[in-house]
């Protein structure tokens, strides 16, 4: 379980997150929802030490992550697929995946076989440079690169960004499948609230850095006020 307690982050005078608290249950998908500027990406970046917290606590299975370096947080089992995917365009698919496996000291060949089974298209493109992949393939590569290290927590920042609806649906199905099979804890940041709520178990709604709701995905999806004012979901 990953716990966030009274987490605040500021950039100068701007309060990006204010007293954010919630728990993400082990083996479940927690969707982090909200409009642009709500603080979703900042939250994930603070968990992995890319942004500094002003106050509060972040813990993984009781161990504080707050004063750890980003690379040590990754080695502790937190995988982060950043916004824009973060694949290294100059590297081939294989090089990207090998890089993902190094710090975790997992067997690369076994991990590779698992990822190619999960994302067969990556096997076909193994020698291609990441720069030549489509948006969907890059997303798969970014996820496979994080998963090959066998993390216990996976942070996904806007995995559907720029993807066609069909590819987004496939991506969400894969995330759901992973969570079930590997007992993976997933924090899923999405602007596309509708597709995120379909696969998530729980949801946290952020608005201008504050938590306005933290409940089961079902409850959030059926709350008319949240749907209308914070998630932009209007019944057709």
């Amino acid at each position: 379980m990953i716990s966030i307690a009274n987490l605040s982050v500021s950039f100068g005078a701007v309060h990006a997150l204010t007293n954010v608290s919630f728990d993400a249950a082990k083996g479940k998908i927690t969707a982090i929802l909200g409009a642009n500027g709500a603080g979703k990406t900042t939250l994930l970046r603070t968990i992995t030490g890319l942004e500094e917290a002003a106050s509060g606590e972040i813990s993984l299975e009781g161990t504080s992550l707050l004063n750890m370096r980003t690379e040590d947080i990754a080695r502790a089992g937190v995988g982060h697929v950043p916004e824009g995917r973060g694949v290294i365009a100059e590297f081939t698919v294989l090089e990207n995946l090998r890089l993902g496996s190094l710090a975790a000291k997992v067997n690369f060949q076994d991990g590779l076989a698992e990822q190619f089974e999960l994302f067969p298209v990556l096997g076909e493109r193994r020698s291609q440079h990441a720069a030549t992949l489509s948006g969907g393939e890059r997303q798969m590569l970014a996820m496979a690169r994080a998963l090959i290290a066998k993390p216990s927590v996976l942070l996904l920042d806007e995995p559907s960004l720029g993807l066609a609806p069909l590819v987004t649906a496939e991506m969400m199905a894969t995330i759901s499948q992973l969570c079930e099979k590997q007992s993976l804890t997933v924090l899923l940041v999405e602007q596309n609230a509708k597709s995120a709520l379909k696969v998530a178990h729980d949801a946290v709604v952020l608005h201008l850095g504050n938590v306005v709701a933290a409940a089961s995905a079902q409850e959030v999806a059926s709350d008319e006020r949240l749907r209308q004012y914070y998630l932009g979901l209007v019944d057709q």
Binding site: L50, G79, P82, G86, A103, A104
Partner: peptide
């Protein structure tokens, strides 16, 4: 940044 996220020192 990406390298750090993958545990590279």
């Amino acid at each position: 940044e990406v390298a750090r996220l993958l545990g590279v020192r």
